[in-house]
Amino acid sequence: MDFGSIREWLTVENIMELIDRYRSFGPVPGILLPMLEAFLPFLPLVLFVMANVNAFGLWWGFLFSWAGACLGALLVFFLIRKYGQRRILKVLHKHPKIRKSMSWIERHGFGPLFLLLCFPFTPSAVVNVVAGLSKVSTAQYMLAVLAGKMVMIFTVGFVGYDIKALITNPARTAIVTAVIIILWYIGKRIEVRMNMRPEKDHNVE
Rank of each mutant, 00 (worst) to 15 (best):
H93D: 11
H202S: 13
W66Q: 11
V151H: 02
L79W: 09
Q140E: 11
E37K: 12
H93I: 10
F48I: 03
A131H: 08
M142W: 05
L89A: 03
V126T: 14
G72F: 08
I181K: 09
E106P: 00
G72A: 07
S24N: 11
Y161H: 12
R193P: 00
D20V: 01
D162I: 11
E106M: 08
M102D: 09
R197C: 10
F42H: 05
Y22C: 12
N169F: 14
V156I: 15
G4H: 11
M152I: 15
L133M: 10
I98E: 06
L10R: 09
F42W: 04
V129D: 08
E13H: 08
N195V: 11
T11Q: 00
N14D: 05
G160N: 10
G148W: 09
K164G: 09
Q85V: 14
A38K: 04
S134C: 11
I181E: 03
W104Q: 12
L43C: 10
A73W: 00
L143M: 13
P170V: 06
A38T: 07
M142D: 03
L36A: 13
A174Q: 08
M16S: 12
Y22E: 05
R86H: 13
A51M: 08
I167M: 11
I186W: 04
R21K: 14
V176N: 04
G132E: 07
F56Q: 03
L133G: 13
L75H: 01
A38W: 01
E37D: 06
S5Q: 07
S124N: 07
G109V: 13
P123D: 09
R197N: 05
V46R: 06
L117S: 02
F158M: 14
I182D: 12
V156C: 02
P112N: 00
K82P: 04
L43M: 15
M196V: 12
F39T: 04
T173I: 06
E205H: 12
F110N: 08
L74T: 10
P170W: 06
L113N: 15
V12H: 03
I190S: 01
I105P: 09
L89R: 02
H202G: 03
K97E: 14
A174I: 13
T11V: 02
E106F: 01
I153M: 04
A55P: 02
S5M: 06
C118F: 09
A139L: 13
V127Q: 00
